[in-house]
């Protein structure tokens, strides 16, 4: 067994929270730059220019690129040979607590009904899987509400098939309009169960932009959906334009013979994600 200290996890999570809020990953930077080059709308091009200027300032001055520094979502891969000297979830939450305080990030988590702020951005949303090996891999994807609020889940009838899936995805983006801060990235979860398709949709967002789906059918579905979405004309911030989405990522899982769950998770252009391996 390999001993890993939860204090080390806390420290790494603290740093990840801050860097995710301030430094956009290179895959997203290059996708947005390419979008500006391709955008035909003059206003849309200008909006993308402001978005680029914004993340440049954020990176240089260590400022959050968006005031909505999100609810903290984690995907953790815990090697089965790892022995922790404490609880993983506690360690992560402590890292969030420290990161949001030390990084001057906005605490955006509250009681669902009373709406009282928890004051430290916890609890984090943590998805853990046990994998081979002796390492801990932690991925963070802070999620803002502007785009999360426009996300949808639907239990389709199997008879609706792939056409039903396409229609639902396109309709979701159309209804969202300028609200989720386009150009967006779409995570689409297909199959599984009610909760599995939502987690798949979220997970799909973590695939680096510019990479292809390893499944060729899903890859063509992604390309077709991207084309249909960009034909909607919503454009940067919804002011009209060619680039409504930077990418569509699909993850699929087997489902019940009587079900066809579909989840669409919308991500804004501030597609923040970071990972660390311990």
């Amino acid at each position: 067994m390999r001993q890993v200290s939860v204090k080390d996890i806390t420290k790494k999570v603290r740093d990840l929270c801050i860097s995710a809020a301030c430094d956009l990953e290179p895959d997203v930077v290059s996708a947005i730059r390419s979008a500006r080059d391709r955008e035909e709308s003059v206003l849309g091009k200008e909006v993308l220019g402001q978005i680029i200027e914004n993340f440049e300032i954020a990176g240089k001055e260590h400022l959050p690129m968006c005031q909505d520094t999100g609810i903290s979502v984690f995907f953790v891969e815990l090697g089965r040979e790892v022995a922790l000297d404490g609880l993983l979830e506690d360690a992560i939450n402590e890292g969030v607590r420290q990161g949001y305080k030390d990084g001057y990030l906005r605490k955006s988590v509250c009681h669902p009904l009373k709406r009282t702020n928890t004051g430290d951005n916890t609890p984090a949303i943590i998805h853990t899987s046990i994998v081979e090996g002796g390492k801990v891999k932690i991925k963070i994807a802070p999620k803002g509400a502007g785009s999360e609020n426009m996300s949808r889940l639907k239990m389709l009838k199997p008879a609706e098939g792939v056409e039903g899936i396409k229609a639902f995805v396109v309709e979701t983006v159309k209804e969202a309009g300028g609200n989720p801060c386009p150009p967006i990235v779409l995570g689409v979860g297909i199959g599984g169960s009610f909760e599995k398709c939502a987690i798949n949709a979220k997970k799909a967002l973590l695939r680096p932009l510019g990479t292809q789906n390893s499944d060729s059918d899903l890859n063509s579905l992604e390309q077709e959906l991207l084309g249909k979405i960009n034909d909607l004309g919503i454009g940067p911030m919804g002011f009209g334009g060619r680039i409504t989405a930077l990418a569509v990522h699909v993850e699929a899982s087997p489902c019940h013979i009587a079900s066809l769950p579909v989840a669409v998770n919308i991500q804004c252009h501030a597609d923040r994600h970071k990972e660390v391996e311990i």
Binding site: I51, N54, I57, E61, L63, M65
Partner: peptide, 9 residues
Amino acid sequence: AAVGGAAAL
């Protein structure tokens, strides 16, 4: 409208 996400700018 202001540009969403352009918070540092």
